[in-house]
Design a protein around this nucleic acid. Structure first.
Length: 543
RNA sequence: GACCCCGUAGCUCAACUGGAUAGAGCAACAGCCUUCUAAGCUGUAGGUUCCGCGUUCGAUUCGCGGCGGGGUCACCA
């Protein structure tokens, strides 16, 4: 449709002798009374044409051949907008195509042939996932789904490190708890992992092995068991949210394959590495960074920065057309060096998108709960799912733009779960399912095609217009990596259905009208279901 | 102090990336079930978009300067 209009307007502009005019773009007017689609092309081209926008707009409209089967009217409005109205027949045609496409209505091809890698969560196995991880997890997964819907081949990847100081402390934390269980208590350091889960792991070891591990070092069985148990739990939590990864990438791989050494020496060749005070530094200041950063400590151990660089280089080398990093705001300082290093090494960094989400503030009983893996007073993602269910968790995390801090009031989420927006959406779907069941019980074939020309009331038109916008919405949400806009759209669409439902009965004595409205109901169901599928929430048949 | 994110209705947040009269959900108030699901619908009320200057036909959106909140500035990840 937009292409159709674009060509018409381009022709009109050419005829008017405005060759340098920009390509017309169309958008849905905020105010529905302004038509179905609008363009500001006359205002943009006014300067080049050296004419008042309204005059130019009037001539463009005159230059477009009269109303056709799809376009009902084209008129000039306001400071020079050109408003376009579609015919009812156009929307009836959209309804038929929705039913024809079914589960794939809304899928696009803009990403066809493009491979995309989305890295998210990437929490080290030192404890259960927190609510903060949850936001990144749900967001990363939904961005992946959006990319799949627009035709990309997506790899979901989880990057982790099971070596180093934190893991040693983890192992030793388990060891101390284990010894406690054996009755030989020793002081438990403040900077050790305080969580109850450490005791649970220790307890399992004790049950299985008795006191056989009493003189075992922290680095051995304790550390291995802690990692295995915690990772199992992490995967389980993600699984409850419908999240699964294609690749778990272990940082160790980068050492074993020599990639860390390689990037160090390649950067050294570019004079971006130097030694000072016993450490090895990255000359970030030469690449626009604020100051240089240590990449290998005096102990000989690299900081996270170096393997991060090696990892990103690996991603680039794997040939992805799109590389997405989903990070929490606490990691905001880490990526500029990585990007700078990639650029310095001659890699194309335009393909890398770093998406940073702000923190989740958890409020329980009016009190802010801090999130720290090491302390005991955090809320795990698992507990959150227990309390409000996976659909609410996903929906709430996706509801807001990632640039905003997210307030998650547990009490509110639980108490008001019946008035939750997620139920508003699911309720519309269940309601339609119920209507279809009712129609079937009346002997009406719900799959029947009808004469749709009877659909013309304001509520029916509003609903059809909403449904027709779904594919564009999916496309723009994917392009901008903004799932929250899809939520807004689905909420509006569900509202359009609820209003239609209250204004009109679907199943009546009028066979033609019944058939047509069932088509409308089924089309709505398809959009809601496909939308829920992108969000990763269920679309229940009954509630 | 430097850098990043944010500041919009009483609260939590949108606003299609610069468009026309700034919108939803909670919370408040008033209505609507003999009928396909009332987890719904209709209406009322609620605003100096933190402040100032600038850019232009046009600014919640872009730029500069303030103010306020959060985050990050380790040889921790």
């Amino acid at each position: 449709m937009k292409d159709h209009l674009r060509k018409k307007i381009a022709r009109a502009l050419e005829a008017l002798g405005v060759p340098e005019a920009p390509v017309p773009s169309f958008e849905k007017p905020r105010d529905p009374s302004h038509g179905d689609l609008t363009t500001n092309i006359a205002m943009l081209a006014a300067k080049a044409a050296r004419r008042p926008p309204r005059d130019l707009a009037r001539d463009i409209v005159a230059g477009i051949s009269g109303p056709d089967a799809l376009v009902a009217s084209v008129e000039v409005a306001g400071p020079g907008f050109i408003n376009i109205r579609f015919t009812e027949a156009y929307y009836h045609g959209v309804m038929r195509s929705i039913l024809e496409s079914g589960d794939s209505y809304g899928r696009g091809t803009s990403g066809a042939g493009v491979t995309a890698q989305v890295e998210f969560v990437s929490a080290n196995p030192t404890g259960p996932l927190t609510v903060g991880h949850g936001r990144g997890a749900v967001f990363g997964d939904t961005v992946s789904r959006l990319l799949e819907w627009t035709g990309h081949a997506v790899t979901r990847e989880y990057y982790f490190n099971n070596a180093g100081r934190q893991m040693r402390i983890l192992g030793d934390s388990v060891r101390l708890r284990y010894l406690e269980l054996l009755g030989s208590a020793s002081p438990f350091p403040d900077d050790y992992y305080q969580g109850e889960y450490i005791r649970e792991i220790a307890s399992r070891l004790r049950n299985e092995r008795g006191d056989a591990l009493a003189s075992e070092p922290a680095e051995g069985e304790f550390r291995r068991r802690a990692e295995a148990d915690i990772f199992t739990e992490i995967r389980g939590t993600l699984g409850r949210l419908g999240i699964a990864f294609d690749v778990y990438y272990n940082e160790n791989t980068l050492y074993e394959s020599g990639k860390v050494e390689e990037i160090l020496s390649d950067l050294r060749k570019l004079d971006l590495i130097y030694e000072q005070d016993g450490a090895t530094w990255f000359r970030a200041s030469a690449l626009g960074g604020d100051k240089d950063k240590v990449v290998v400590k005096g102990t000989g151990e690299p900081t996270y920065r170096l393997p991060d660089m090696a990892y990103h280089r690996e991603k680039i080398r794997r040939g992805y057309g799109l590389i997405i990093d989903v990070l929490g705001a606490d990691h905001v300082a880490t990526y500029p060096d990585v990007i700078a290093a990639m650029k310095a090494l001659g890699h194309d960094t335009d393909r890398i998108k770093v998406l940073i989400h702000q923190f989740v503030t958890v409020v329980r009983e009016g009190e802010v709960v801090k999130m720290s893996t090491r302390k005991a007073n955090y809320i795990t993602l698992d507990e959150l799912i227990d309390e409000v269910g996976p659909d609410v968790v996903r929906y709430f995390f996706l509801m807001r733009g990632i640039g905003s801090h997210l307030n998650f009031d547990l009490k509110l989420a639980k108490e008001q779960s019946e008035a939750n927006p997620v139920f508003y959406l699911q309720y519309a779907h269940a309601r339609i399912a119920s209507i279809i069941r009712h129609a079937a019980s009346m002997g009406i074939d719900p799959a029947g095609e009808g004469d749709l020309s009877v659909l013309s009331s304001p509520e029916e038109m509003d609903l059809m217009k909403a449904l027709s916008g779904f594919p564009d919405m999916v496309e723009s949400c994917a392009r901008a990596f903004e799932p929250h806009r899809l939520i807004e759209y689905l909420h509006e669409t569900a509202g359009a259905f609820h209003r239609f439902y209250h204004a009109h009965r679907v199943v009546t004595d009028d066979g033609t009208m019944t058939a047509a409205r069932i088509v409308l109901a089924r089309g709505t169901m398809i959009v809601l279901k496909n939308g829920c599928s992108i969000l990763g929430i269920s679309a229940p048949e009954k509630m």
